[in-house]
């Protein structure tokens, strides 16, 4: 019995340690989430200004003449998957991988090229069916805009060269602090309707366009994609940390439940030993008397 008590005490101590760690991780995830939300907030003015410019120019040009707005003959689908570098974030990665797998199964016989952000994705897709076309070495959490820009430039180049006929983005949307969901978005060819070309605003927008409307629009399009991907990466990161916070909170709660149930067991076992010892003493005294 005494051994059982010792064992229980050891387990309680172990679970307490785990609870301490998961609580610390919960707090770290929650501060990081806050910082990421600030970062996402900081990127909004640029995105908005760019969208406005694109929208007004889109009303001025013939969209058919821009290769990024047109499909090409390649049947291959490019998938840009945004994963994270660390685990312990609930179903974040398994949800993402499920979405990718479903996409692959929906398109049997179509060559699929995977472009992967994040160490978890690198590990998961290595040796699995479609294979990784290109894995970006960046640590997702610290990714600067210019690095996303270079990645998108490479993808645009592949699209223009006809290596891929379309490009989709698979990343996690941050719907709220409690709800995050993987989503598939079309990046290339760019849907002209998504540019919100506004002929009315375009009419009143009559600046000097140097060197020409077409050249500026052509430069704006990749920038627009870069911004979309950058925004999606920030959103995916916010989702990752939100899910990590929830997972760590659940772990802390579970550990606390376990501590109280183990403590109860421990107390009962201790009480039992005391009672038994008392009975033995009383019994021994009785026997001496008798």
């Amino acid at each position: 019995m005494a051994k059982g008590i010792k064992e229980l005490r050891r387990r309680i101590r172990g679970v307490k340690n785990i609870a301490q760690i998961t609580r610390a991780m919960e707090m770290v995830a929650s501060t990081k989430l806050k910082r990421l939300q600030e970062r996402a907030e900081g990127s909004k003015p640029y995105g908005e200004a760019l969208r406005m410019l694109v929208g007004r120019l889109a009303g001025k040009v013939e969209s058919e003449q821009f290769p990024l707005l047109r499909g090409n003959t390649s049947g291959a689908i490019g998938l840009l998957v945004v994963t994270g570098d660390k685990g312990l974030c609930g179903a974040y990665h398994s949800n993402l991988f499920k979405t990718v797998t479903a996409l692959v199964q929906q398109n049997p016989g179509t060559p699929i090229k995977l472009f992967v952000y994040g160490g978890k994705g690198r590990i998961y897709f290595r040796g699995r069916k479609p294979g990784i076309e290109l894995a970006y070495p960046d640590v997702v959490e610290k990714i600067p805009f210019v690095s996303v820009r270079d990645a998108v430039r490479g993808l645009v180049k592949r699209f223009l060269a006809g290596e891929i006929g379309s490009l989709k983005l698979v990343s996690t949307r941050f719907l709220s602090a409690a709800q995050q969901k993987p989503e598939v978005r079309d990046l290339l060819p760019i849907d002209p309707a998504s540019l919100l070309g506004d002929p009315v605003a375009a009419k009143h927008f009559d600046p000097i366009l140097e060197p020409s409307t077409e050249v500026i629009f052509e430069r704006l399009l990749p920038k627009y994609l870069e911004m979309q991907v950058y925004g999606a990466v920030l959103e995916a990161l916010a989702s990752e940390f939100a899910m990590r916070r929830i997972a760590m909170k659940a772990a802390t709660d579970a550990a606390n439940d376990m501590i109280s149930s183990l403590t109860r067991q421990y107390n009962r076992a201790r009480q039992e030993t005391i009672t038994k010892e008392l009975l033995e003493i009383v019994g021994g005294a009785e026997a001496l008397k008798g």
Partner: peptide, 13 residues
Amino acid sequence: VGVLAGHAPLVSP
């Protein structure tokens, strides 16, 4: 491009 107040509207890379 040198810009002073009242510059003509312009968009350029």
